[in-house]
Design a binder for these strands. Structure first.
Lengths: 234, 234
DNA sequence: GGGCATTTGTCACACGAGTGAAATATTACC
DNA sequence: GGTAATATTTCACTCGTGTGACAAATGCCC
């Protein structure tokens, strides 16, 4: 989730030339591109490959673009995906209907592929407020994802980036033991060639940071296994 | 606001025929019409008669239409007025620039006077969201959107355009961390090919501007993440 | 239109927090 | 008690950020 995997984009477009153009530019921008010319197939694919982004032509074979958009939004498994509509010039009313239907952005043909990619990327950067499950809490600790802020008993706890990532992972999976290697995998952006012992050090720093206000230690050491977040007595 | 007095309209147009045509139709629709052919005179009149609506020709004597528009918007006493631009056919780029400058609607010549009146009336009915929700506040900072003015502890804080956009975004989303890229997306009109580090500099300028009165720093640096507006202690 | 002030983007440099590894001390388990 | 695992401390180095300076771009006024 935190790691920088290639974003997937599904292109729904029945004009071969445009499809190629879009595919080329998104590939070049590091996206993994899948495409189809058919609306019904698009609905299957969007569930299957779980793209981060759908580029959707307004007028396509099978189910119309606007209908595809609506159905993607209605299906809870796919409702979250970002959607950019491609439409012909000058159809202002279409634009309104498209936004109502749930498209996130609109690009009118003819368009600059570079701009399309740029807007798509900006769209993916934008956080969707509705999707932010942004409060984690356990044993007197609160973590606000949006504000990137941690409190213990109401007191703000300053954490370094690594400490924050560690704690966030523990809060997302409380009372579950993770080995040092597992922790390196989830809380270190570049987890190659890092000593397992290093985890110990950061666990300690996290303990100190959290305990600054004098509370009990919520991080449990499980000998020869790893660590977990656990409010039960040691 | 509640009273149904005759709406006042100022027509800025140097073509005698068009001026007459517009005057006639707006009068018939119950407007009180004033007109001028000169841009500089328009700026005086708009303060004097406080119209509800300005019909503004793109190309006029004196100061150009776009410049008149800009100045009307910049003057806090007149910034709220509705503006409809009259422009020659086919100038899409003009249209864009006009909207950026602050025109509310665009009508291309030749136009139907009936349609012009209808759109003007629709415009007046339409509530301008930016002018309604026009007070943002957080941690001793007040931002008046309509007046385009910022105060801290009551003291007026002069801000450059970029600083203003940054602060406005933060005030609209307080205590939420934004990456440099996200800030470029929302606070820079043309965000292509701008270095991420540039954000740092403008954040600093905003800090200096806000802190001029000696208050604490409300902008929080979240290392390796971005910035947020946050009144809590570190 | 020309000259001036402001705004803006970029850079170079300095500083300090954050990080990873190593060395030593401590604890837990048999 | 012996051994292995973990805790703690320390240190060198990296990397992100703050800062001031500068040049280009923009807008403004006459």
């Amino acid at each position: 989730m935190a790691r920088e995997a290639h974003k997937r984009v599904l292109v729904v477009e029945d004009d071969r030339n445009i499809e190629e153009l879009v595919r080329l530019h998104f590939s070049k921008a590091g996206f993994e591109v899948t495409s189809t010319a058919d609306g019904d197939e698009a609905l299957v694919l969007v569930e299957e490959i779980k793209p981060d982004l759908v580029i959707l032509d307004w007028m396509i074979e099978g189910t119309s673009g606007i209908e595809v958009c609506r159905r993607i939004r209605r299906n809870s498994k796919t409702a979250h995906v970002a959607i950019v509509m491609l439409t012909a010039r000058g159809e202002e009313s279409d634009k309104l209907r498209g936004l109502e239907t749930g498209a996130d952005d609109f690009v009118t043909k003819p368009f600059s592929p570079k701009e399309l990619v740029a807007r798509a990327q900006a769209l993916l950067r934008r956080t969707r407020p509705s999707l932010l499950a942004d409060k984690l809490a356990y044993g007197g600790i609160e973590l606000d994802v949006a504000a990137h802020r941690v409190r213990r008993e109401g007191q703000v706890v300053p954490l370094s980036p690594t400490e924050y990532r560690l704690l966030k992972h523990f809060l997302e999976n409380p009372e579950k033991v993770y080995s040092r290697q597992q922790l390196l995998d989830v809380a270190w952006p570049h987890n190659e060639d890092i000593e397992l012992r290093t985890v110990d050090v950061h666990i300690r720093r996290l303990r100190v940071a959290l305990g600054g206000s004098g509370g009990t230690d919520l991080i449990r050491t499980v000998r020869s296994e790893g660590y977990s977040l656990d409010a039960s007595a040691a």
